[in-house]
Design a protein around this nucleic acid. Structure first.
Length: 217
DNA sequence: AATGGGATCAACCGCTAGTTA
DNA sequence: CTAACTAGCGGTTGATCCCAT
């Protein structure tokens, strides 16, 4: 790819930087007519002086019809499905901490949100907390603080809430928080709490992944 | 009203896994 | 089997926005 793409890039004098409205329209029109995929040829055929990669990113993160714009806000659980932990996590709109998790997988749990958006959101918050703790986000100190201070505190809020709803919507129900361990394949533990204020917390462990989502905390 | 700093967003880059010829 | 190509991912960065002073 690199060789062919590189040659094409040289020939085409490719554009970089922010997309214009015209470019957006061309891309959206072309995809509406011909569909997604084969991004390099798509870019070429649509007459866009962009790499296929750039087109794909623009489409997935911005132009796609189901992408929700604006701030990540609490409470929009219309797509909630209790049949899976992933569906359960769709309750939550703000991510507090995804351990060992891929952004794309989290994005799948939050319809209309892109991995890029979630990644940005997470990073700003993690960095903020790390700063408050005066330590590096990758340090053991920070990770321990997350696991043993922050997450138990979130879980305690779930347990203490007077009107815990959907506690068993996942499989675990709200319970006493235990320090996370990596679960076996198929094992899952989900705690969900909804507060009067409208805040929602979801603490979940699915297989080897541990997810902690929260709204409005 | 001006400005500086932090937060957020959009986009690019390098890498890798999967697919195809 | 292998090389070429494609798609997708996470990390990073620069631009812009927002808000406190």
């Amino acid at each position: 790819m690199e060789a062919a793409a590189g040659q094409w890039e040289e020939e085409m004098d490719l554009r970089r930087g922010p997309w214009t409205v015209e470019e957006d329209l061309v891309l959206a029109d072309y995809i509406a007519t011909h569909g997604e995929g084969r991004w390099n040829s798509l870019a070429r055929c649509a007459g866009l002086k962009r790499t296929g990669k750039s087109c794909r990113l623009r489409w997935l993160n911005y132009l796609r019809p189901d992408v929700r714009r604006g701030n990540i806000t609490p409470r929009s659980s219309s797509s909630f499905s209790s049949s899976t932990p992933a569906g359960a996590t769709a309750l939550a709109q703000q991510i507090i901490h995804p351990f060992w998790c891929r952004w794309s997988r989290i994005a799948q749990c939050l319809p209309g949100r892109t991995d890029n958006e979630i990644k940005n959101y997470w990073r700003t918050r993690v960095q903020k907390h790390a700063k408050q703790l005066k330590c590096d986000v990758n340090s053991k100190q920070f990770k321990d603080a997350m696991r043993y201070l922050w997450m138990p505190r979130l879980a305690e809020r779930i347990r203490a809430a007077s009107d815990v709803k959907n506690a068993a919507a996942g499989t675990g129900g709200a319970g006493i928080w235990q320090p996370p361990r990596r679960l076996g394949v198929g094992e899952r533990r989900v705690q969900i709490g909804e507060f009067e204020s409208g805040e929602v917390l979801v603490v979940g462990a699915v297989g080897g992944d541990l997810l902690v989502f929260a709204a409005g905390v």
